[in-house]
Amino acid sequence: MIRLQRCADCGAAQYPPREVCAACLSDRLAWESATSLPARVLARTRLHHSNEPRFRPRLPLTVGLVQFDAGPVAVCFLAETAAPGDAVQVRIGADDLLEAA
């Protein structure tokens, strides 16, 4: 399940998670869970270099910036076919990381 934080006081959604709401500083934060969340691709890059040896056998990797319909922006792995402007679904993939397709 993918989880986004939403403030119980002001309703703002946020990512990455925090212990307080960045909009109103409330600490009454709820988790919204779903199998996937709708988002739009903002940007895309193909990585040909990684600073971590464990990623090097998988290069080139496609990484993107997506904006959830709920508002926040996330860095995630991107399907080969996903291009900037596309509507995508973001889910948690095999590495316990966000993937958009």
Binding site: L42, A43, R44, T45, L47, H49, S50, N51, E52, F55, L61, V63, G64, L65, V75, C76, F77, P84, L97, L98
Partner: peptide, 15 residues
């Protein structure tokens, strides 16, 4: 997400 470091983060901005 691939450990591209600032090269990757600024590549997204440049894109």
């Amino acid at each position: 997400y691939g450990a591209g470091g600032p090269n990757a983060s600024f590549a997204l901005i440049a894109d």
